[in-house]
Simulated scan of single mutants.
Amino acid sequence: MIPGIEAAVVLKAIAWRDRRLRTEKDGVDLSNLFAVLAQHGADDLGGWRLTETELTASRRDAALHLHQLADTWEVRPPKARVDARALVSRIRSFVTRPTDPGSEHPPSAHSAP
Rank of each mutant, 00 (worst) to 15 (best):
V95D: 00
R85K: 07
G27W: 05
L50C: 01
R17Q: 12
P3T: 07
L30E: 02
S31D: 14
D44A: 14
D61P: 01
P98V: 04
M1A: 12
F94Q: 00
A8W: 15
V28R: 08
G27E: 14
I2A: 05
A80M: 13
A62E: 04
A80R: 13
A13L: 05
G27P: 03
R97N: 08
A8L: 13
P113R: 12
P106W: 08
L45R: 09
V10Q: 05
P77F: 01
Q68T: 12
L64F: 02
S111L: 05
S89Q: 09
I91M: 09
T96A: 05
T56H: 06
L33T: 13
R90F: 00
D83A: 04
D83W: 12
P106H: 13
Q39M: 04
A8Q: 12
L55V: 03
V95L: 11
A62I: 10
W48N: 15
S89W: 03
T51V: 06
R19A: 14
Q39S: 15
D44C: 04
R81M: 07
R49C: 06
L69M: 13
W73A: 01
W48L: 11
S31K: 03
K25T: 09
T23G: 12
R59T: 05
I14D: 06
A84G: 01
V28F: 11
S111P: 00
G41L: 10
W73Q: 03
F34Y: 11
A15S: 12
I91N: 03
D61Y: 14
R22V: 00
P101S: 15
A35M: 04
V9A: 02
D100H: 07
A13F: 10
A80F: 01
D29H: 07
P107S: 11
H105W: 08
V36G: 02
L55H: 03
D43M: 04
E54R: 08
E74Y: 09
H110K: 09
T72M: 09
T23F: 14
W73G: 01
V95E: 00
R92H: 13
R76I: 10
M1P: 07
T72F: 12
L69R: 07
